[in-house]
Design a protein around this nucleic acid. Structure first.
Lengths: 132, 132, 132, 132
DNA sequence: GTGGTCTAGACCACA
DNA sequence: GTGGTCTAGACCACC
């Protein structure tokens, strides 16, 4: 797994890293129980402050995506299944509003949005099976 | 139209307000040429500093969602359509990506995501026509 | 790069500064990825409130001329190219019209105006290539 | 001569009116010594506050485009010729900077700008003869 | 009355 | 150190 940060992006560095790790996990490139590079190692690779890497890891741990085992390293967590289907839906729908709103403002027609989502979903090499 | 802000949210107040206005416009609850509450009025309603409200309004004006008419008030503008198709897609995808990642983590299958979006799109009173 | 503000001008301070930065960028004196003075530094140089400088920077960031990187500084971005040709023309004509009117009032003939513009264009270190 | 104001524009009403009068004069639709509608008449036609019309007239009088003859009305002034060629050029060039800067940011190539200016000049039905 | 600008000074997030 | 947010309160332009 190689990550890289863009010093020209306006996004905070720790968030760039966090989002890349999230997507790597989502894509299945980082499997559960995989071990991530140490804070020190990663900070050297990316040429950033160790604090910045630590912050990204902390954020992901708080989200339940990573688990740190003190003295041994930081690992990809098992996928959580503690949400009821209704709670899952609620959570996802809630976060849909801002970008759907953006779509309206950008002048997208309804079917264009659906087309774009479908396209992106394909590119994501979606691996989840339908659970219901 | 009623708005409300959460002081416990990590999102800045002016952005909370801006996003609520964006959604109200996207939903068609605030139609073009509708007049918004004055800065002073809104700041009283929300119990925040008038500057904070002004900032939200200014932000939305820069985005082309509102137009301010000094001495008269601030009004809802027409949706923008001055971006190239590629730039439009780029913007939307950027905002959609983190959400898709989230969907994967929640265990959603591809067709479930599409179903959810389609459903939500229907709930919006989508007024845009396909431009192309 | 030296900037200066006129307290006697009717133009707001933050706009005076913004316009000077715009012109410096347009002339090629400030190249992409160049770092601008910090808000605090600039506010000392100009003897104005830091908020006023921040406002100029924010305005230019919204226009896509600058990118701010929290904790790191504020930098010159690449010129925007996300507008449709029609929207581009509309914007430019809108700003050009009052100037053309002025030229007529000053008694300029059509070819004199063209000559004057051509001259000035040459003085700019025009870096854009024709896109179409 | 018919004028009209857009209540949907963000430009102050008195400036909309002033600019329309300027352009009408520039185009030769309003000739020197032509008499403009009274403040009261104009304010009724446009359905705006008389103060607003008065302000537009005052602005144009200050610029030397109109002369008011108390008790008789307000008239288009004779074109001024009191500037030396150098002063004329200086004045016009000074006001060229902002929109030329905009052109750079919008990504225009040098010859595109010249083309656009030439086009607009033609549409203006330019009536001035070369003076030099 | 409306919005727009400016100042002073505080606190937070990021590196 | 950097930029980002928020407040309080002043003054101006526009209608």
């Amino acid at each position: 797994m190689r990550f890289h940060i863009s010093t020209t992006s306006r996004l905070p560095i720790y968030q760039q890293l966090a989002q890349q790790i999230r997507e790597a996990i989502a894509r299945g490139e980082l499997l559960p129980e995989a071990c991530l590079p140490s804070v020190r190692q990663m900070s050297q690779d990316l040429v950033v402050n160790p604090n910045t890497v630590a912050r990204a890891y902390t954020e992901l741990e708080r989200e339940g995506l990573l688990v740190s085992r003190p003295g041994r390293g930081i690992y990809v967590a098992q996928p959580r299944n503690d949400l009821t289907p209704a709670a899952r839906d609620r959570r996802l729908i809630e976060k849909m509003n801002p970008w759907l709103t953006e779509a309206v403002h950008l002048g997208y027609a309804a079917d264009e949005v659906l087309r774009l989502v479908a396209e992106r979903v394909r590119e994501f090499q979606w691996q989840n099976e339908k659970v219901a």
